[in-house]
Design a protein around this nucleic acid. Sequence first.
DNA 1: TTGCGTTACGACTCTCGTAAGGATG
DNA 2: CATCCTTACGAGAGTCGTAACGCAA
Lengths: 299, 299
Amino acid sequence: MNLNQIELLRILQETNFNQSKAAERLNVVQSAASRQLQLFEEELGSPLFERHGKKLLGLTALGERIMEQVESINQAKKNIHAIADDFRDNRNGCLHIATTHTQAKYLLPGPVQRFRERYPDMSIYMIQSSPDELIQHLHHHRADIAICTEKVDEDEKLVIKPCYEWSHIAVAPPRHPLAQGELTLQRLATYPLLTYSQGFTGRSNIERAFRQAGEKMDITLAAADSDIIKTYVRLGLGVGIISSMAYEEGNDSDLAAMDLSHVIPRSVTKIAYLKHLYLPTYLKYFINEILAQAPRART
Amino acid sequence: MNLNQIELLRILQETNFNQSKAAERLNVVQSAASRQLQLFEEELGSPLFERHGKKLLGLTALGERIMEQVESINQAKKNIHAIADDFRDNRNGCLHIATTHTQAKYLLPGPVQRFRERYPDMSIYMIQSSPDELIQHLHHHRADIAICTEKVDEDEKLVIKPCYEWSHIAVAPPRHPLAQGELTLQRLATYPLLTYSQGFTGRSNIERAFRQAGEKMDITLAAADSDIIKTYVRLGLGVGIISSMAYEEGNDSDLAAMDLSHVIPRSVTKIAYLKHLYLPTYLKYFINEILAQAPRART
DNA sequence: TTGCGTTACGACTCTCGTAAGGATG
DNA sequence: CATCCTTACGAGAGTCGTAACGCAA
């Protein structure tokens, strides 16, 4: 057994069990990959992959179990380098952040800017994607840290840090009838609604609130980001339900904003990262900057 | 970085940072070890060991942190082989049990015998030692499983399975005055006592009980095993305090046994193993056999 | 025929062992 | 002067790349 074989297994999984692609990613020819895999399976005494003829189709039961250990070794290997780099105060690495539109736009600009001032030689990669994908980015080491509101609970391999709490608001053109009188889900439900796509920015909370109230939502537009929603609210398509952070005092003064915290449960935005990940100094700094930023974003 | 370098680090720690001995254990010449260590430190960019001249004295702060990851890799490496062996239903391995005299003599004979019947081709190593050492055996992979009563709590790297509960008894020559009337710590304290060495078989519970009662123990003999204690009780040195399991109806009928469960808190014997250890089928079997044996040992 | 994997073989890289040398107490 | 580690260099084991082949869609 050696680390290249371990890495090969990992990459094979990432390339859908395609040896040729795996070999390419490891900068070796395909035959070398084939041989190393054979040697490893021989050493263990049982095949790790299901095969149809020669083609690899997936993992065997044994392979599944082995992969957990492979992942553990890979994590430790990365940590060793991260620890050493951190110890040498190496500031030439890069920070990979995975997040959604809302957080990228309203929460992270401050922390990112301060991070760049403190660590000018480090590059920052932001990966914008859906909450489902965020978690995958963490697991596949494509991101160090994820910031989002949905989906990150109940994963025992992750550390979840609650970051801040916010509520939804309704936005509508000025002098909209909703602005008068008490705002209820019943009244909201009488209008066409514009809000986030499934799985985005507290959408699950919105759904649950309407479901429990026995009201059906008439969703005219579902978008991944608040700007799209606001744009179409301006065009008169209906009433928008967005995160309170997404209402900008200056730019959005042409829209009426109405608090919904009394009818839709407040959402919590969290920071997530792998439990076994070593946190370098710069990453701790960034996390702290987000936590420091959070109160300002609170409503 | 490669697995041999990782293994070298691990062995260096076990050999008190002596390259020559580490090299010998790895079946390479010393110069090879020296070079591999240099290469690895070079790769990381900082030394992992404190040096005085050329001699290694210990780990640097960086080294300490790296060692945690090394240990993690080592565990995963072992697990990979264990999983594969288990999957192939390989029954030619060996089972390393670390335990104390009392458990080895009164709890384990049954489970061990049944294990040997079920897995006749597996060899069994029993390592008898003090509770302090037991935990070290687990951490250093010299034992798969430890069974004992003391010291195993509060180690977050271990899984602790409570196994059974028992109490201490006092043993004395027949017609001893203690056998008459109510048995209290006050009365016990008036006799010379014979019991277990520090850290053995619930000794800490005995101490705590006397301390809380404000009584001082006059310990004539402290031994690691019950047989020594019983032997000297027979010679009239004083009153023995031993585990109830250690009183054998047949052999010990010449001694008076007096229950102490009302004055000394009951002890719990536990099974301990490393949290990240893969449990092969045979090890699960052995653990279950111990748990099944436990009720019979209960008093 | 193209894509994917295996087998055979010579070339090369990398690690090892031998041997000699420096430092420390 | 004994122990411990480092350095230099040639030998050898192991891995790689090239190339040819087998198999399936």
